[in-house]
Amino acid sequence: MTDHGAASNATGALLDKATVLVRWLLGGVFLYFGLVKAWHPVDFLKLVRQYDVFEGPPFLNLVAICLPWLEAFCGLLLLAGVAVRGTAVTLVCMLAPLTLLVLHRAWLLSEANGVPFCAIKFNCGCGAGEVFVCPKLVENLALIGFGCWVSRRRDHRFCLRSRLIPPAA
């Protein structure tokens, strides 16, 4: 094996390990915050309502019911390594619009109260209580980035069933 090949293998192995860690981190974060929200459905319902996106039943209630459990479910799948890429895509597709909603809500609060954007602190319904908006947005962007990374990696280690559909021979 050439030096170049050995270095490439070492980098690949490192990336594999990093991907496992990122996947577990992502899974743990979503499982935890999903369960926190699922445990307090009424509180989460009130928080979803504050965004003024969904008017009354059944859509408002459906979002408040499903989002926490869906997050926890996806978190569990990532931790166990089941349908890894599809799960990561699902999480990114959920998190990206939610991040835009948080941004929009914080912008409105900033305008209404005449407070600098990064000084806005509110409970965004993310599961961590009242948070400052700028660190929250950075955190969400990082999670979206991690999700994209996991969804782009073809091979995943320590998985129960990384793909639902086995690759064609």
């Binding site: 699922a38 445990w39 307090h40 459905p41 009424v42 319902l45 209630n61 408040a64 019911i65 499903c66 989002l67 926490p68 459990w69 869906l70 479910f73 996806c74 799948l77 349908a83 890429r85 599809g86 799960t87 895509v89 699902t90 597709c93 793909r163 639902l164 559909i165």
Partner: peptide
């Protein structure tokens, strides 16, 4: 396809968990 399956399964789990939970909406 995998993402769609995960989404549908997740929604089913969510509705079932909510129906079984005493705190459910």
């Amino acid at each position: 396809f995998e993402a769609a399956v995960v989404f549908v399964a997740g929604m089913a789990v969510a509705l079932l968990a909510n129906a079984l939970s005493p705190l459910g909406l």
